[in-house]
């Protein structure tokens, strides 16, 4: 493990890891775009008042959530490859498979976000003359974003890690495939352990900040809710500890939550 020559071997083959990281990020980015688009469309469909769109959204979500991503990716890759379509790369397959898979999860996140907004908000909008679509756009969705940001970031982290499922479906381009190719390679196999460590470190460096961001947001949102409740108390009833929490939390927002008391 501490044999410098093995780490040197990793360093000489650094391009392998860089290429792998880039294609994993590329796959994740475009996969995410597809997932977001599908998530918004099916999320809105699942909160529709008509039955048909709700059923279609339900079928999509249940079917995708209850079968393994690996199977979906394998099916997509081999079914399409053997149906003779030219130019269907492993990368493209990964993007589509990840997009469809995480689209189902993101649509559930969005559905939960929409249902968390009280019905009175829509009614107020209707009474002012907003149509259903414009009410969603101006009033419901902006309130939804705050609710869904933390679970959304978790989905992004999962999506990045799930690029590893492309190892078997086409493979050979993403970070996991490259890392494994290095680890079992004829000239490089002696440094297998080091190779896997580097692969893991790269994933960690990408995903950890995102996870931190998610939990930071979550904490901030919770604190803000607490602060909002506390701010409704009479000033005399607020303890010093609560006061500090409100002031600290107010920092970035500066929207006068405390001075709303008079």
């Amino acid at each position: 493990m501490f044999d410098a020559s093995k780490w040197e071997l990793v360093w000489t083959h650094r391009q392998t890891f860089i290429d792998g990281t880039l294609s994993t990020l590329l796959m994740a980015l475009f996969g995410l775009l597809i997932a977001l688009a599908l998530g918004v469309i099916f999320g809105l469909m699942s909160t529709s008042r008509s039955k048909a769109p709700r059923i279609i959204a339900r079928v999509y979500v249940e079917f995708i959530q209850n079968t393994p991503l690996m199977l979906q990716a394998l099916f997509l890759f081999y079914a399409v490859v053997f149906s003779g379509i030219e130019g269907f790369s492993a990368l493209l397959c990964g993007i589509i498979a990840l997009g469809i898979y995480h689209g189902a999860y993101i649509s559930e996140v969005i559905r939960a976000g929409i249902t968390a907004v009280p019905k009175g908000q829509l009614e107020a909008a209707y009474s002012q003359g907003f149509s259903h679509i414009s009410a969603m756009f101006y009033i419901v969705l902006p309130q939804t974003i705050k609710i869904i940001l933390p679970p959304m970031v978790n989905q992004v982290v999962n999506l990045i890690k799930n690029t590893s499922c492309m190892f078997l479906a086409g493979g050979a381009v993403d970070l996991i495939s490259r890392t494994n190719a290095f680890a079992v390679g004829e000239g490089t196999g002696t440094a297998a352990g080091q190779g896997y460590i580097i692969g893991g470190v790269i994933f960690f460096i990408i995903c950890f900040p995102l996870s931190m961001l998610a939990s930071h947001w979550e904490k901030k949102l919770k604190m803000r809710d607490v602060a909002t409740v506390k701010a409704r108390k009479k000033p005399d009833d607020i303890s010093d500890a609560e006061l500090d929490m409100i002031i600290e939390n107010k920092g970035g927002e500066g929207n006068g939550r405390v001075d709303g008391q008079s």
Binding site: P118, Q121, A124, S127, Q128, G129, F130, P142, Q143, K146
Partner: peptide, 22 residues
């Protein structure tokens, strides 16, 4: 016609206020 008629003719005040919190 609901959206249009409400827009040009009427407004409503609710029991639960229903102000937009964002």
């Amino acid at each position: 016609r609901r959206a249009f008629i409400n827009k040009i003719h009427s407004s409503m005040v609710f029991q639960q206020f229903n102000l937009y919190p964002h």
